[in-house]
Design a protein around this nucleic acid. Structure first.
Lengths: 140, 140
DNA sequence: ATACTAATTGCAAAACTTTCGCGATTAATA
DNA sequence: TATTAATCGCGAAAGTTTTGCAATTAGTAT
């Protein structure tokens, strides 16, 4: 947590209480929508939805969080962590399980030397049918 | 192309001209927003935006397309292809390059036996800074 | 402590994206 | 050609995200 704050401060961004609370929420939960962050933060301090969005956009640009819109209408935001975790989502019912396997560090190096980009993070989602939904879908 | 159509027909969905055109567009372009599909299809036949969305949702559920919302506000849709291609996006300017490396087939097998899910496709995006933006960001 | 300044916030409105209900149309089948 | 379930278009609604602007605040210097 402290790392994120110092990182932002170094870049010249202020550590407002709203911003800190937003990061705190993201740290406590694996994945949150803007609305969810709003109500979590509002339990402790007052904050406006536009502030949530402005901060999320800043954090996205900084590469501190990533966004994914799984199977729902709105976006979900998650902190970029060391031990990256990914989701496997069921196309039929939306159920999900997490998996961690993903030898990304190696791939990142290859890609960096190939493209000259400085790789920050990634987003990896797998879609399929969960054990419950497989039968329904194949007999259709 | 024919494969997609047969697949849908087998499942009992009608091959309307709107649906066919939408698939045709997705096949010709690597990635499209709903609005982009609308204007592409409208160049040939009349179609309504809600029809676009309804079809995109169907195709998503069928696992024929995937969606990603890269760095923009709206979603982007792409056909799930054999030779999967992925994007590396610049957090600062939005530029992107594609990369194909991704030994997914192997990983998919592992995940299937581990989770009992039937894996259909995946979404893999990498974020970073492009060569032009790296200097700007590090000196900040 | 106080003053200063640029960054940030809240608010209200706007812009944009996506979904939905319903009557009309159409593709597929008999 | 008739039938029917799926699909479409339209208009409205719902939901999500952004924006402008005046007021506030964190961080720094005095």
């Amino acid at each position: 947590m402290q790392d994120y704050l110092e990182f932002l401060k170094e870049k010249g961004y202020k550590l407002t209480k709203q911003r800190c609370k937003i990061l705190e929420c993201l740290e406590k939960h694996p994945s949150l929508s803007a609305e969810e962050i709003l109500s979590l933060v509002n339990q402790e301090i007052e904050v406006n939805l536009s502030t949530i969005y402005r901060n999320l956009n800043l954090l996205l640009q900084m590469g501190l969080i990533r966004k994914s819109n799984q199977l729902s209408q709105s976006d979900y935001f998650e902190l970029v962590r060391q031990n990256c975790s990914h989701d496997l989502l069921c196309l039929a019912c939306g159920d999900k399980v997490s998996f961690s396997t993903c030898n990304f560090n190696q791939l990142a190096k290859e890609i960096e030397s190939e493209t000259k980009y400085q790789v920050k993070h990634h987003n990896f989602e797998i879609y399929g049918l969960c054990p419950k939904c497989v039968p329904k879908k194949t007999e259709m």
